[in-house]
Amino acid sequence: MKPRAPFLQSVWAILWKDLAAELRSRELFSGMFIFALLVIVIFNFAMELDVATRRSVTAGVLWTTFFFAGTIGLSRSMAMEKDRGSLDGLLLAPVDRAAIYFGKMLGNLLFMLLVEALILPLYSFLYNQNLFNGGLFLVILLGSLGYAAVGTLLASMSIQARTRDLLLPILLFPVLLPLVIGAVKASGGYLSGAAREEILPFLNLLLTYDVIFLSISYMLFDSVIEE
């Protein structure tokens, strides 16, 4: 008797399930996207994004938008598991708990990247600023990965608490600061065409954050979902 399904197969099954459900309802994606759009509109009037300001704040505006929209995605994706008690369904299956973590994490990452892929051209269009930049894409990938890594862990905790959606940003944002600094500084560097030596420390910071939080979240996930 095989003790359990192969690791990658389980990760893929969970990811596939999230994608299939989302393709049907598009709740999560449209929620994140519309929210992101609203944040950008609000920024426009709150900060008067004229040409001079834009150069310095674009990176900050983008990342604030992504991170805020991201919490909506995280809550929604975990709520789907808790809705009909499905988290128990996952736990009853003979799969490695880490596979559950990586399956959910990759789903969250994917939705986030999807929203970002739509927001970027839209921002370029609205403010006539070219954001088609390989370096920026790399930063977005690294930043979103770290966000999804720690976000998936914290969302699976907040979803089991009474205060749920209120709790997630409160738990998440204080530990996100290094990611904000790294992502904003590195994106800003690429957008303003800064020298590689100026950007590199922030890329390193992002990479460090990703490695540390991916491993600790993976280690702690068991304690969050198992009784």
Binding site: L154, M157, V175, L177, P178, G182, L205, I212, L220
Partner: peptide
């Protein structure tokens, strides 16, 4: 779990 997340993030925050 959250205490540990906080404990790990503090030095990273400091460096950042």
């Amino acid at each position: 779990v959250y205490t540990l997340i906080g404990a790990v993030s503090a030095p990273v925050t400091f460096m950042a």
